[in-house]
C-alpha cells in the first residue's frame, strides 16, 4: 500500500501537568524504516502508543492514510481497519503474551479477523516455521526464555500481516543470536516494503536497518529528523540528546576522548 502512512502535526501529550511530548510533526511514507531515537524518558514510547491509537494526542493532529486518528474516529468505524494494518510489539513481551500456549497466542490475531479456523491454523504454522519457533507451539508462553518470548510476541503481531509494524525497544534484553535473528527479520520486512517504526537507543540497529531517524531530546521535542547516515554523523546532536556519551581515558601519555556507542572511534586524541 503506497502513500503517506502517518502525518503528525504539532502533536503533544501530557500526563497531568507533565509533558511527555511537545510539538512533534513528521510524516512517514509507506515502506519506510524509521527509527525514533532518544534517551530514556524522552517520550519515544508515548509517541509509539499514539501511533498505535492506544493513547491520543493532547494537542495536535495524527493522520493514518489521510484519516484522522482520534478516540472518536476509532470508535466510529476505523478501528478494525487500523488494527489490521498496524501491529505493535511491546518492549516487555510478558505483558503481550496472555494465551495458554504459543500456538493460541499467535492464532489470537487471525481469529479476531474472523479468518476461518483452518486458514488461521495454517497461518500460525507458517509463521512459527518462518520464525523458527515451531518447536515451542505447545509451550506456555511464561515458560519460555526472554528471546523466545520476544519471538512469540513478534509472531503474534505478524500473524495479522500488518502493513505497519511499531517496535518499542526491540533489542531490549535479547542475546546476540536473537538480535541477529531480529535484524534478519527486519531486513525481510523491509524487503517486503512493510513500514517499520521503532523506538530505540540501540544505534547499531539504527545503522543497519533504518532509512531515517527522528531524535527526541530530553525536552520532549523533535531535535532532528533526517537520514540515518546524517543523524548518526552528528555527534554533537547525539551527545546533546543523551544518546551517546563522551569518555576520556589515558594510554600512557596519550589521552583519548571518544564517544561511547557503536560509532566510537579511538582517533580523537588530545
Amino acid at each position: 500500500m503506497a502513500g503517506q502512512v502517518y502525518k503528525l502535526e504539532g502533536v503533544g501529550y501530557s500526563y497531568g501537568t507533565y509533558s511527555a511530548l511537545k510539538n512533534i510533526s513528521f510524516t512517514v511514507n509507506a515502506g519506510e524504516s524509521l527509527a525514533i531515537l532518544g534517551a530514556n524518558g524522552s517520550g519515544k514510547s508515548s509517541l509509539l502508543k499514539i501511533l498505535d491509537g492506544l493513547q491520543f494526542a493532547s494537542v495536535g493532529r495524527v493522520e493514518f492514510f489521510g484519516e484522522r486518528i482520534t478516540e472518536e474516529t476509532l470508535k466510529h468505524g476505523l478501528l478494525r481497519c487500523f488494527r489490521e494494518r498496524v501491529g505493535f510489539v511491546f518492549p516487555e513481551p510478558d505483558v503481550q503474551l496472555f494465551c495458554p500456549t504459543v500456538f493460541e497466542e499467535v492464532a489470537f490475531g487471525p481469529l479476531q479477523l474472523d479468518i476461518p479456523a483452518a486458514e488461521a491454523r495454517k497461518r500460525v504454522a507458517d509463521l512459527l516455521e518462518m520464525l523458527g519457533i515451531s518447536a515451542l507451539k505447545e509451550r506456555a508462553p511464561h515458560t519460555l526464555s526472554s528471546g523466545e518470548k520476544k519471538k512469540v510476541a513478534i509472531a503474534s503481531v505478524l500473524a495479522v500481516n500488518p502493513d505497519v509494524l511499531l517496535l518499542d525497544e526491540p533489542t531490549n534484553g535479547l542475546d546476540p543470536r536473537t538480535q541477529v535473528w531480529l535484524f534478519e527479520l527486519l531486513g525481510s520486512l523491509k524487503a517486503l516494503k512493510k513500514t517499520v517504526i521503532m523506538a530505540t537507543h540501540d544505534l547499531s540497529l539504527v545503522q543497519d536497518f533504518a532509512d531515517r531517524a527522528i531524535v527526541l531530546d530530553e525536552s520532549h521535542t523533535a531535535a532532528a529528523d533526517g537520514s540515518c547516515a546524517a543523524i548518526l554523523r552528528d555527534k554533537d546532536l547525539l551527545l546533546r540528546a543523551n544518546i551517546i556519551h563522551e569518555h576520556t581515558h589515558r594510554h600512557g601519555d596519550v589521552i583519548h576522548i571518544h564517544s561511547h556507542g557503536p560509532f566510537a572511534t579511538h582517533d580523537e586524541h588530545e
Binding site: 500500500m1 502513500g3 493514518f64 492514510f65 489521510g66 484519516e67 474516529t73 466510529h76 468505524g77 476505523l78 478501528l79 478494525r80 481497519c81 487500523f82 489490521e84 494494518r85 497461518r123 507458517d126 509463521l127 516455521e129 518462518m130 520464525l131 505478524l158 500481516n161 502493513d163 535484524f183 534478519e184 527479520l185 531486513g187 525481510s188 524487503a191 517486503l192 516494503k193 543497519d208 536497518f209
Partner: peptide, 24 residues
C-alpha cells in the same frame, strides 16, 4: 543483510486499500 527464509505467500500480500471511515 541476511534475511529470513520461508516467508509464506499470505504474508507477502499487500493491502491495496487504505482505511476510511466511509467504508469501515
Amino acid at each position: 543483510m541476511a534475511q529470513i527464509t520461508g516467508i509464506p505467500p499470505w504474508f507477502k500480500e499487500a493491502r491495496d486499500k487504505p482505511c476510511s471511515t466511509r467504508d469501515a
